[in-house]
């Protein structure tokens, strides 16, 4: 194998996948073109649109600005992988219930980003709109909009996306 290629192993949606990649291949292209995992989408390919978002070792990231070789051994969860035993994830169902998309191209990235957002907020992380960063803010609509700003939707389904995430966030909060 040339110095410019590498053998890597990824755990993709619970399945161990080993492959040889040219070091130039991004995680996004490895998933889509080499492994046939087409849930994450290629939008801008420059980290600006969020369509390629997955959970990498549990955290939301853009896969277009990450080389696959740098992810050897990592766990990748796509939107498709958030479903368990054929049952939709609560975010999937909420996007359906609230019409959180039109064409659907950005949706897998939106779903993964929302899943990451809920974990981050659950851990008490503040955001740029949090009035006092010493506090752990409640996930109101302003907080959700700010935290989802890395995901663009060219159909403009933002209002319904926020409603969908708000519903899941409200259910995730412990009862008072």
């Amino acid at each position: 194998m040339a110095d410019t290629e590498s053998e890597i192993t990824l755990l993709v949606d619970g399945v161990r996948r080993s492959l040889a990649v040219d070091n130039r291949v991004t995680l996004l292209d490895a998933l889509r073109d080499r492994l046939g995992v087409t849930s994450p989408k290629k939008g801008c390919d420059h980290g600006q649109c969020g369509a390629c978002t997955v959970l990498l070792d549990g955290r939301r990231v853009t896969t277009c600005l990450t080389f696959a070789v740098a992810c050897d051994g990592a766990e990748v969860t796509t939107s498709a992988g958030l479903a368990t035993d054929g049952r939709l994830h609560p975010l999937h169902q909420a996007f359906l219930d609230h019409d959180g998309f039109q064409c659907g191209y950005c949706t897998p990235g939106q779903i993964c980003s929302a899943a990451g957002l809920l974990d981050e907020a659950g851990a008490g992380w503040p955001s740029a709109v949090t009035a006092d960063v010493r506090t752990a803010p409640a996930l109101d609509e302003e907080e959700i909009r700010e935290r989802m700003s890395g995901n663009l939707c060219r159909c403009g389904a933002y209002v319904n996306i926020v409603a969908a995430i708000s519903e899941v966030a409200a259910k995730a909060e412990p009862a008072p």
Binding site: T62, R147, N151
Partner: peptide
């Protein structure tokens, strides 16, 4: 927190 997006700050 004023910079980039949630996904990019994680990287």
């Amino acid at each position: 927190l004023a910079g980039a997006s949630g996904q990019l700050r994680n990287l």
